[in-house]
């Protein structure tokens, strides 16, 4: 086993429940690399919802909360407000975050509370067996859209950027180095960070949407269909914009605002801890 992997992963819980070639493992390793780079294992807790992607932190040797479908964000907000000195990382999926948890995402982003959300987008509901998700491309045939999906996909990054999130980035599993950097940046950023990762689901999305089952071919396709955005650039027609989409350090963070107000009113935070 990889040494770094061994340091952060609970060996007794292995093997992971991901299918062979699943992109979640790549995101998991990128996150581990980011933790190692920042050296903040004890200062960090992970929260996740329900779905394949939400299983990523369950193997970590740290404080982890594996919560309800779509509700990872409120749990994390409670934890963050109780311990504003610590960092919280949230693993969630496209269905978990954009469908059932959409309202929580909008509100957490507009609060600009210091959380880092890694939204793993595999374009499909993987755990339940390949149903349409909010990110499924229009016209894609899935188990619940036999004549092709009628809905236009929701773009999580644009949504969060519009709602007021202050760090927004999108990468794919084919860009592990950049992803690792983005996760580290997101954790360090004081404010609501949202990182969307396009991952391959060779079993469900591979079969139903992309028509290829090989994880390598899917990763190559992700590389092809994306375009790394840098300021002032124009994205070619039909390509997905990846890279750092928004980085705003001017907006005040929620817990900071609260603490500042309390200080003004001469109230010490956590005077008497319950």
């Amino acid at each position: 086993m990889n040494e770094l992997y061994e340091k952060y992963i609970k060996k007794e819980s292995l093997p992971t429940l991901f299918c062979p070639g699943c992109g979640n493992g790549i995101v998991q390793f990128a996150a581990i690399k980011a933790f190692e780079k920042l050296g903040i294992k004890d200062e960090l807790a992970c929260v996740s919802g329900i779905g394949c992607s939400s299983w990523i932190p369950c193997y970590f040797k740290m404080d982890v909360m594996h919560t309800m479908h779509g509700r990872a964000l409120p749990f994390a907000e409670g934890l963050k407000l109780a311990r504003p000195d610590k960092k919280i990382l949230i693993f969630t999926g496209d269905g978990d975050c954009l469908a059932i948890g959409g309202n929580h995402l909008i509100h957490a982003a507009s609060r600009n509370i210091d959380l880092t959300v890694i939204e793993i987008n595999n374009y499909i509901y993987g755990m339940t067996g390949g149903q349409k998700s909010p990110a499924t491309p229009e016209g894609a045939v899935t188990k619940t859209s036999p004549f092709g999906s009628y809905d236009e996909p929701i773009d999580g990054c644009s949504l969060v950027a519009a709602a007021g999130g202050t760090y927004v980035a999108r990468w794919t599993t084919a860009h592990p180095l950049q992803l690792e950097k983005a996760i580290a940046e997101g954790i360090e950023h004081k404010g609501f960070s949202f990182i969307e990762v396009l991952t391959q689901c060779p079993v469900q999305a591979g079969n139903n949407i992309f028509g290829e089952k090989s994880p390598v071919a899917m990763m190559a396709r992700y590389k092809e269909m994306t375009y790394i955005y840098k300021e002032g650039m124009e994205i070619p027609e039909g390509k997905v914009r990846i890279g750092r989409i928004k980085h705003d350090t001017s907006r005040k963070e929620y817990t900071d605002k609260v603490l500042q107000k309390l200080e003004e009113k001469n109230i010490k935070k956590g005077q008497s801890n319950g």
């Binding site: 990889n2 992963i9 062979p20 493992g25 390793f29």
Partner: peptide
């Protein structure tokens, strides 16, 4: 897991780029 495993041959050629470590979804490669 019950599937065929890869094997590392021609190890002299390794560039130590670390991509296999990063892209292995199961942290199996060191």
């Amino acid at each position: 897991y019950g599937t065929n495993m890869p094997e590392a041959v021609n190890r002299d050629a390794c560039l130590f780029c670390g991509m296999c470590e990063r892209l292995c979804p199961d942290g199996a490669i060191s």
